[in-house]
Amino acid sequence: MGRYLSTLRIFWIASLTAELEYQANFLIELVATAGNLVGSIFVLSLFYGRGQSLGGWSWEGAMVVLGVYTLLEGVTSTLLQPNLSTIVAHVRTGSLDFVLLKPIDSQFWLSARTVSPWGLPGIAMGAGLIGYAAWKAGATPAPLTLLAAALMLVASLLILYSLWFVLAASSIWFVKIWNATEVLRSVLVAGRFPVSAFPAGLRAFFTFIVPVAFLTTVPAEAILGRASGPWLLAGGAVAIASVVLSRWFWQFALRFYTSASS
Protein backbone atom coordinates (compact mmCIF):
# COMPACT_ATOMS: atom_id res chain seq x y z
CA MET A 1 0.00 0.00 0.00
CA GLY A 2 2.83 2.39 0.87
CA ARG A 3 4.45 1.68 -2.48
CA TYR A 4 1.21 2.50 -4.26
CA LEU A 5 0.93 5.84 -2.46
CA SER A 6 4.51 6.85 -3.16
CA THR A 7 4.08 5.74 -6.77
CA LEU A 8 0.93 7.85 -7.04
CA ARG A 9 2.79 10.86 -5.67
CA ILE A 10 5.58 10.46 -8.25
CA PHE A 11 3.04 9.88 -11.04
CA TRP A 12 1.18 13.06 -10.28
CA ILE A 13 4.20 15.27 -9.66
CA ALA A 14 5.63 14.17 -13.00
CA SER A 15 2.41 14.78 -14.93
CA LEU A 16 1.71 18.12 -13.24
CA THR A 17 5.17 19.41 -14.14
CA ALA A 18 4.56 18.37 -17.72
CA GLU A 19 1.10 19.95 -17.90
CA LEU A 20 1.95 23.19 -16.19
CA GLU A 21 4.25 24.12 -19.06
CA TYR A 22 1.15 25.11 -20.94
CA GLN A 23 -0.30 27.89 -18.74
CA ALA A 24 -2.59 29.21 -21.46
CA ASN A 25 -4.54 25.96 -21.22
CA PHE A 26 -5.70 26.88 -17.75
CA LEU A 27 -7.32 30.10 -18.91
CA ILE A 28 -8.94 28.40 -21.91
CA GLU A 29 -10.27 25.60 -19.75
CA LEU A 30 -11.60 28.06 -17.17
CA VAL A 31 -13.49 30.03 -19.83
CA ALA A 32 -14.78 26.85 -21.50
CA THR A 33 -16.05 25.34 -18.24
CA ALA A 34 -17.70 28.60 -17.16
CA GLY A 35 -19.30 28.96 -20.62
CA ASN A 36 -20.60 25.40 -20.46
CA LEU A 37 -22.07 25.93 -17.03
CA VAL A 38 -23.76 29.20 -17.99
CA GLY A 39 -25.21 27.46 -21.06
CA SER A 40 -26.57 24.60 -18.96
CA ILE A 41 -28.12 26.97 -16.43
CA PHE A 42 -29.73 28.90 -19.30
CA VAL A 43 -31.24 25.72 -20.75
CA LEU A 44 -32.49 24.77 -17.32
CA SER A 45 -34.01 28.23 -16.84
CA LEU A 46 -35.99 27.80 -20.06
CA PHE A 47 -37.74 24.80 -18.49
CA TYR A 48 -38.53 26.64 -15.29
CA GLY A 49 -39.27 30.04 -16.89
CA ARG A 50 -42.92 29.32 -17.55
CA GLY A 51 -43.66 28.01 -14.10
CA GLN A 52 -43.05 24.42 -15.15
CA SER A 53 -40.78 22.03 -13.37
CA LEU A 54 -38.60 19.07 -14.31
CA GLY A 55 -39.84 15.76 -13.01
CA GLY A 56 -41.11 17.31 -9.83
CA TRP A 57 -37.78 18.91 -8.94
CA SER A 58 -37.55 22.47 -7.73
CA TRP A 59 -35.31 24.97 -9.56
CA GLU A 60 -32.75 24.76 -6.74
CA GLY A 61 -32.90 20.98 -6.65
CA ALA A 62 -32.28 20.80 -10.40
CA MET A 63 -29.31 23.16 -9.89
CA VAL A 64 -27.83 20.68 -7.39
CA VAL A 65 -28.10 17.96 -10.04
CA LEU A 66 -26.35 20.25 -12.49
CA GLY A 67 -23.66 20.95 -9.87
CA VAL A 68 -23.02 17.23 -9.40
CA TYR A 69 -22.83 16.83 -13.16
CA THR A 70 -20.30 19.67 -13.46
CA LEU A 71 -18.23 18.13 -10.67
CA LEU A 72 -18.19 14.76 -12.47
CA GLU A 73 -17.19 16.46 -15.70
CA GLY A 74 -14.31 18.07 -13.84
CA VAL A 75 -13.16 14.73 -12.45
CA THR A 76 -13.45 13.23 -15.95
CA SER A 77 -11.11 15.85 -17.40
CA THR A 78 -8.75 15.61 -14.43
CA LEU A 79 -8.36 11.86 -14.13
CA LEU A 80 -10.50 9.66 -16.35
CA GLN A 81 -9.98 11.13 -19.76
CA PRO A 82 -6.19 11.72 -19.53
CA ASN A 83 -5.54 8.23 -18.17
CA LEU A 84 -8.04 6.03 -19.90
CA SER A 85 -7.58 7.59 -23.31
CA THR A 86 -3.97 6.36 -23.27
CA ILE A 87 -4.99 2.69 -23.02
CA VAL A 88 -5.83 2.80 -26.71
CA ALA A 89 -2.41 4.21 -27.54
CA HIS A 90 -0.74 1.62 -25.31
CA VAL A 91 -2.48 -1.16 -27.18
CA ARG A 92 -1.79 0.30 -30.60
CA THR A 93 1.90 0.96 -30.07
CA GLY A 94 2.45 -2.12 -27.93
CA SER A 95 3.80 -0.11 -24.99
CA LEU A 96 1.21 -1.88 -22.84
CA ASP A 97 3.94 -4.52 -22.62
CA PHE A 98 5.98 -2.21 -20.42
CA VAL A 99 3.02 -1.58 -18.13
CA LEU A 100 2.38 -5.30 -17.78
CA LEU A 101 6.03 -5.94 -16.94
CA LYS A 102 6.01 -3.58 -13.96
CA PRO A 103 5.56 -5.18 -10.54
CA ILE A 104 2.49 -3.09 -9.85
CA ASP A 105 -1.21 -3.55 -10.56
CA SER A 106 -1.69 -2.72 -14.23
CA GLN A 107 -5.20 -1.36 -13.72
CA PHE A 108 -3.86 0.99 -11.07
CA TRP A 109 -1.07 2.13 -13.39
CA LEU A 110 -3.42 2.74 -16.31
CA SER A 111 -6.04 4.52 -14.19
CA ALA A 112 -3.82 6.77 -12.12
CA ARG A 113 -0.77 7.36 -14.27
CA THR A 114 -1.43 11.02 -14.98
CA VAL A 115 -3.45 13.87 -13.59
CA SER A 116 -4.44 16.92 -15.55
CA PRO A 117 -5.08 20.15 -13.65
CA TRP A 118 -7.41 21.43 -16.38
CA GLY A 119 -10.48 19.80 -14.88
CA LEU A 120 -10.00 21.55 -11.54
CA PRO A 121 -12.10 24.63 -12.52
CA GLY A 122 -14.96 22.24 -13.26
CA ILE A 123 -14.58 20.53 -9.88
CA ALA A 124 -14.48 23.89 -8.09
CA MET A 125 -17.47 25.31 -9.98
CA GLY A 126 -19.45 22.10 -9.49
CA ALA A 127 -18.78 22.10 -5.76
CA GLY A 128 -19.63 25.80 -5.56
CA LEU A 129 -22.91 25.32 -7.42
CA ILE A 130 -23.85 22.33 -5.23
CA GLY A 131 -23.20 24.32 -2.06
CA TYR A 132 -25.05 27.42 -3.24
CA ALA A 133 -28.08 25.57 -4.65
CA ALA A 134 -28.36 23.26 -1.64
CA TRP A 135 -28.30 26.28 0.65
CA LYS A 136 -30.96 28.01 -1.48
CA ALA A 137 -33.07 24.86 -1.41
CA GLY A 138 -32.95 24.99 2.38
CA ALA A 139 -30.93 21.82 2.92
CA THR A 140 -29.38 21.60 6.36
CA PRO A 141 -25.81 20.35 6.78
CA ALA A 142 -26.72 17.67 9.32
CA PRO A 143 -23.92 15.11 9.91
CA LEU A 144 -26.01 12.25 8.57
CA THR A 145 -26.91 14.18 5.42
CA LEU A 146 -23.26 15.06 4.85
CA LEU A 147 -22.22 11.44 5.32
CA ALA A 148 -24.88 10.17 2.92
CA ALA A 149 -23.97 12.86 0.39
CA ALA A 150 -20.26 12.04 0.60
CA LEU A 151 -20.92 8.30 0.22
CA MET A 152 -23.18 8.80 -2.78
CA LEU A 153 -20.69 11.13 -4.44
CA VAL A 154 -17.94 8.54 -3.98
CA ALA A 155 -20.28 5.83 -5.32
CA SER A 156 -21.10 7.99 -8.31
CA LEU A 157 -17.38 8.56 -9.04
CA LEU A 158 -16.67 4.84 -8.82
CA ILE A 159 -19.53 4.02 -11.20
CA LEU A 160 -18.35 6.66 -13.66
CA TYR A 161 -14.80 5.35 -13.46
CA SER A 162 -15.85 1.75 -14.04
CA LEU A 163 -17.96 2.66 -17.07
CA TRP A 164 -15.05 4.52 -18.61
CA PHE A 165 -12.54 1.86 -17.75
CA VAL A 166 -14.53 -1.04 -19.18
CA LEU A 167 -15.09 0.86 -22.39
CA ALA A 168 -11.43 1.89 -22.66
CA ALA A 169 -10.27 -1.63 -21.84
CA SER A 170 -12.27 -3.05 -24.72
CA SER A 171 -9.71 -1.39 -27.00
CA ILE A 172 -7.78 -4.61 -26.51
CA TRP A 173 -10.17 -6.12 -29.04
CA PHE A 174 -11.25 -3.07 -31.00
CA VAL A 175 -8.27 -0.81 -31.23
CA LYS A 176 -10.33 2.09 -32.54
CA ILE A 177 -12.50 2.43 -29.46
CA TRP A 178 -12.03 6.13 -28.97
CA ASN A 179 -15.32 7.06 -30.63
CA ALA A 180 -17.19 4.80 -28.23
CA THR A 181 -16.00 6.84 -25.25
CA GLU A 182 -17.40 9.90 -27.03
CA VAL A 183 -20.73 8.09 -27.23
CA LEU A 184 -20.51 7.37 -23.50
CA ARG A 185 -19.84 11.05 -22.88
CA SER A 186 -22.94 12.06 -24.83
CA VAL A 187 -25.11 9.55 -23.00
CA LEU A 188 -23.82 10.86 -19.71
CA VAL A 189 -24.92 14.36 -20.72
CA ALA A 190 -28.38 13.13 -19.72
CA GLY A 191 -27.07 13.35 -16.16
CA ARG A 192 -27.46 17.11 -16.32
CA PHE A 193 -31.14 16.72 -15.52
CA PRO A 194 -32.91 14.79 -12.75
CA VAL A 195 -33.68 11.32 -14.01
CA SER A 196 -37.39 11.73 -13.23
CA ALA A 197 -37.54 14.38 -15.96
CA PHE A 198 -37.25 11.67 -18.61
CA PRO A 199 -40.06 9.44 -19.94
CA ALA A 200 -40.49 6.12 -18.14
CA GLY A 201 -38.61 4.06 -20.74
CA LEU A 202 -35.55 6.30 -20.68
CA ARG A 203 -35.75 6.47 -16.91
CA ALA A 204 -35.43 2.69 -16.72
CA PHE A 205 -32.57 2.77 -19.21
CA PHE A 206 -30.72 5.41 -17.20
CA THR A 207 -31.23 3.51 -13.98
CA PHE A 208 -30.58 -0.10 -14.94
CA ILE A 209 -28.58 -0.11 -18.20
CA VAL A 210 -26.36 2.96 -18.00
CA PRO A 211 -26.70 3.97 -14.36
CA VAL A 212 -26.91 7.71 -15.01
CA ALA A 213 -29.43 7.98 -12.17
CA PHE A 214 -26.76 6.92 -9.68
CA LEU A 215 -24.29 9.38 -11.14
CA THR A 216 -26.17 12.62 -10.46
CA THR A 217 -29.75 12.21 -9.29
CA VAL A 218 -29.12 9.93 -6.32
CA PRO A 219 -26.18 12.01 -4.99
CA ALA A 220 -28.28 15.16 -5.42
CA GLU A 221 -31.11 13.59 -3.41
CA ALA A 222 -28.60 12.73 -0.71
CA ILE A 223 -27.23 16.26 -0.69
CA LEU A 224 -30.73 17.68 -0.35
CA GLY A 225 -31.31 15.31 2.59
CA ARG A 226 -34.08 13.42 0.80
CA ALA A 227 -32.31 10.16 0.14
CA SER A 228 -34.15 7.03 1.18
CA GLY A 229 -32.44 3.99 2.65
CA PRO A 230 -33.07 1.65 -0.29
CA TRP A 231 -31.66 4.16 -2.82
CA LEU A 232 -28.55 4.68 -0.69
CA LEU A 233 -28.04 0.93 -0.47
CA ALA A 234 -28.64 0.52 -4.17
CA GLY A 235 -26.12 3.29 -4.91
CA GLY A 236 -23.48 1.58 -2.80
CA ALA A 237 -24.21 -1.83 -4.29
CA VAL A 238 -24.07 -0.56 -7.88
CA ALA A 239 -20.76 1.16 -7.13
CA ILE A 240 -19.16 -1.94 -5.64
CA ALA A 241 -20.51 -4.12 -8.42
CA SER A 242 -19.14 -1.76 -11.08
CA VAL A 243 -15.65 -1.72 -9.59
CA VAL A 244 -15.63 -5.51 -9.25
CA LEU A 245 -16.87 -5.79 -12.82
CA SER A 246 -14.15 -3.45 -14.11
CA ARG A 247 -11.45 -5.47 -12.38
CA TRP A 248 -12.80 -8.77 -13.67
CA PHE A 249 -13.18 -7.33 -17.14
CA TRP A 250 -9.57 -6.15 -17.18
CA GLN A 251 -8.24 -9.56 -16.23
CA PHE A 252 -10.46 -11.07 -18.89
CA ALA A 253 -9.25 -8.61 -21.54
CA LEU A 254 -5.61 -9.23 -20.66
CA ARG A 255 -6.03 -12.89 -21.44
CA PHE A 256 -6.77 -11.88 -25.00
CA TYR A 257 -3.97 -9.44 -25.24
CA THR A 258 -1.21 -10.71 -27.43
CA SER A 259 0.18 -7.22 -28.06
CA ALA A 260 0.35 -5.32 -31.29
CA SER A 261 2.92 -6.08 -33.99
CA SER A 262 6.11 -7.84 -33.04
Binding site: R3, T7, I10, F11, A14, T17, P103
Partner: peptide, 11 residues
Protein backbone atom coordinates in the same frame (compact mmCIF):
# COMPACT_ATOMS: atom_id res chain seq x y z
CA UNK B 1 11.19 11.83 -14.48
CA UNK B 2 10.54 8.41 -15.99
CA UNK B 3 13.37 7.02 -13.88
CA UNK B 4 11.75 8.42 -10.76
CA UNK B 5 8.52 6.69 -11.70
CA UNK B 6 10.33 3.39 -12.20
CA UNK B 7 12.16 3.74 -8.90
CA UNK B 8 8.84 4.22 -7.11
CA UNK B 9 7.18 1.33 -8.92
CA UNK B 10 10.03 -1.05 -8.11
CA UNK B 11 10.22 0.27 -4.55
Amino acid sequence: DSLRVNAAVYG
